[in-house]
């Protein structure tokens, strides 16, 4: 495959710190190989900035193979950029054409405050998980793994939800910065499994409330989340969670506390 060289104009959100004012700054990216990944393109731009004595563009990244969920970036208004089912680190420059202008912004949401440039703080997701995104299974107390058969369709359904990498693209894409897809994926991954049933009601109430407390918006069923999710998690998990939340709320109101 022949490597093309691309000349691009980048419009990048620069913000020196969490408290500073940010702005879009324009950079010219010259001679970018089409075989480079998007993050490698930024590496090249940064190398030039460093050589010029400027501060490089700060962005989160780690595994660079689409699984850790660390990379973010809203590219031309779309979290993780063009292409379905990929993270920013899996996006390659052959998706762009010579002369393109590319807007690069952080994942924007009040619940994801910007720390610097394109880096945001997604610890709200951790707090949501801490509010119930687990099955209490004391180490060493487990029964034999095959003691409880789980039908394959149920296991598959749980797996599809468990594929979430916690990147936050769903929030970034949602017109209301809602975290429903993230929360629903975890609620349903654990809730559908027999071992997760004991804490099901407590989990959904706790996690939804933690989500609300963190300042995420509300779901208006527009499915932008599903469209940009790099793991293509279905918004029907949200449907199911809505139902589970309603049932748990009624139980909590009229039967017992969780």
């Amino acid at each position: 495959m022949a490597t093309e060289k691309l000349n691009l104009t980048l419009k990048v959100w620069r913000q020196p710190s969490s408290t500073a004012q940010g702005e879009i700054v324009t950079y010219e990216a010259k001679d970018i190989p089409s075989t480079a990944s998007f993050l490698e393109m930024l590496d090249i731009v940064n190398e030039e900035l460093i050589n010029k004595g400027d501060e490089p563009i700060a962005f989160d990244h780690d595994c660079r193979e689409g699984i850790c969920g660390m990379c973010s970036l809203t590219i031309n208004g779309r979290p993780h950029g063009p292409g379905d089912g990929v993270t920013t680190c899996q996006l390659h420059m052959r998706s762009f054409r010579n002369g393109d202008t590319i807007w690069i912004e952080p994942f924007r949401a009040q619940a994801f405050p910007i720390l610097k440039d394109l880096i945001v703080d997604r610890s709200a997701f951790d707090h949501i998980i801490q509010a119930g995104g687990y099955i209490s299974a004391r180490t060493g107390s487990a029964v034999d793994a095959n003691a409880m058969p789980i039908p394959k369709p149920v296991a598959d359904y749980a797996f599809d939800a468990a594929a979430c990498i916690g990147c936050g693209a769903c929030v970034a894409a949602c017109k209301n910065a809602s975290a429903m897809l993230f929360v629903a994926a975890k609620v349903e991954h654990l809730g559908v499994l027999p071992q997760g049933k004991a804490e099901k009601d407590r989990r959904v109430l706790g996690m939804v409330r933690a989500m609300d407390d963190a300042g995420f918006g509300n779901c208006t069923n527009q499915y932008e989340c599903e469209a940009v999710c790099p793991k293509e998690i279905s918004a029907t998990y949200i449907t199911k969670m809505n139902r589970d939340f309603a049932a748990a709320s009624i139980k909590e109101a009229v039967v017992n506390e969780f």
């Binding site: 419009k11 208004g77 779309r78 209301n176 208006t220 932008e224």
Partner: peptide, 22 residues
């Protein structure tokens, strides 16, 4: 709440799937 959840809007806005009606 939705407005408050994203006070700073994107400089470049785009829509992938959401309908105009929604």
């Amino acid at each position: 709440q939705n407005r408050a959840a994203r006070e700073n809007r994107y400089a470049y806005e785009t829509t992938v799937r959401a309908s105009k009606a929604s």
